[in-house]
Amino acid sequence: MGYPTDLLSSRAVIEPGKYAVIPPEGRVNNVVPGFENCTMTILGSPKLGATFVDYILTFHEGGKNTDGFGGQDNIETFVCVLEGKVKAKADDEEFILESGGYLYCPPSVTMYLENLEDGDSRLFLYKQKHKPLEGKKPWVVSGNTNDLEEVEYEGMHNMRLKDLLPTDIAFDMNFHILTFDPAGSHPFIETHVQQHGAYLLSGEGVYNLDNKWQTVKKEDYIYMAPYCLQATYAVGREPLSYLYSKDCNRDEDL
């Protein structure tokens, strides 16, 4: 909400190093070199406490990234198309990604993106430094979330999970989609060393973050730091679903 039609107010909640809820209202455009004809907002970042960077990106007609994304400094990247159609390249390998389409590039591979729509295409974008494991190397992965198997989570019939990347130990992170039917919830309040960046794809809910209940809905972004207490109830008339990252398959450094 905002001036001149209403009082200045926001649903955003920012607790650096703990958690954040960032709704679409109030987001500002960040200019990132190499990305053309686009509107981009940096969401999760090290300034918030994350070890990764999440973006929400809208390519307008002719939008593209000309300098490449990742492919150096040990940075791995991921993109998921929320709406529209883009051409994605992993070095010389080309993919056409429509709604639900995604691409993961390991740190040795540069990602290029180009909007194929006459109008806008909306994307979720991610990068982080890869934590290598001797003798193991991740590889390029592409698919579409609409084609993935959905399995019950922790025996909960009203809570389902999709894995977007292989569970192979070569990968130090994964992306998942969690979906809750209305009135569905986590089986318990989680407390763990992993951190998450989550983008809500549909529905509404109340999310327990550090034992404080926050209202959330479609297009909100949530950052959850390591050891942040977390769980949700789905409310409303449609399933609550979100795309989120999770670090995995590595020991903790001393």
Score class of each variant (00 low, 15 high):
residue 214 Q to R: 08
residue 139 W to S: 06
residue 201 L to Q: 03
residue 150 E to S: 08
residue 211 N to E: 15
residue 198 A to C: 10
residue 193 V to P: 02
residue 184 G to V: 13
residue 155 G to N: 12
residue 231 A to I: 09
residue 195 Q to L: 04
residue 204 E to F: 06
residue 174 N to S: 14
residue 190 E to H: 04
residue 122 R to T: 08
residue 225 A to F: 04
residue 227 Y to V: 07
residue 179 T to K: 12
residue 141 V to P: 00
residue 212 K to L: 13
residue 185 S to P: 03
residue 222 I to T: 09
residue 146 N to K: 15
residue 188 F to G: 11
residue 159 M to I: 07
residue 148 L to R: 00
residue 165 L to I: 07
residue 218 K to Y: 00
residue 199 Y to M: 10
residue 152 E to R: 09
residue 221 Y to K: 09
residue 216 V to M: 12
residue 162 K to E: 01
residue 118 D to N: 14
residue 135 G to P: 00
residue 160 R to Q: 03
residue 118 D to S: 14
residue 229 L to F: 04
residue 137 K to G: 01
residue 146 N to L: 15
residue 121 S to K: 08
residue 159 M to K: 13
residue 139 W to E: 10
residue 223 Y to C: 06
residue 205 G to S: 15
residue 194 Q to M: 09
residue 221 Y to G: 04
residue 168 D to A: 12
residue 221 Y to F: 15
residue 220 D to M: 08
residue 140 V to N: 04
residue 227 Y to Q: 11
residue 126 Y to N: 00
residue 231 A to P: 01
residue 128 Q to I: 02
residue 206 V to G: 07
residue 151 V to W: 03
residue 125 L to S: 02
residue 189 I to Q: 14
residue 150 E to M: 08
residue 125 L to K: 05
residue 189 I to K: 15
residue 163 D to P: 01
residue 219 E to H: 02
residue 215 T to V: 10
residue 196 H to C: 06
residue 227 Y to S: 08
residue 161 L to F: 01
residue 112 Y to A: 02
residue 192 H to T: 09
residue 121 S to G: 05
residue 120 D to E: 08
residue 125 L to N: 01
residue 188 F to E: 15
residue 231 A to Y: 00
residue 145 T to C: 09
residue 172 D to E: 06
residue 171 F to Y: 08
residue 209 L to F: 02
residue 176 H to P: 00
residue 198 A to H: 05
residue 212 K to F: 02
residue 158 N to A: 09
residue 176 H to W: 12
residue 127 K to V: 01
residue 184 G to K: 13
residue 188 F to P: 06
residue 181 D to P: 03
residue 123 L to E: 00
residue 136 K to R: 13
residue 231 A to T: 05
residue 157 H to M: 06
residue 115 N to C: 10
residue 212 K to W: 01
residue 120 D to F: 03
residue 218 K to R: 12
residue 178 L to K: 05
residue 117 E to H: 05
residue 208 N to H: 10
residue 200 L to D: 00
residue 119 G to T: 04
residue 163 D to H: 15
residue 121 S to T: 10
residue 136 K to H: 04
residue 181 D to Y: 13
residue 126 Y to W: 11
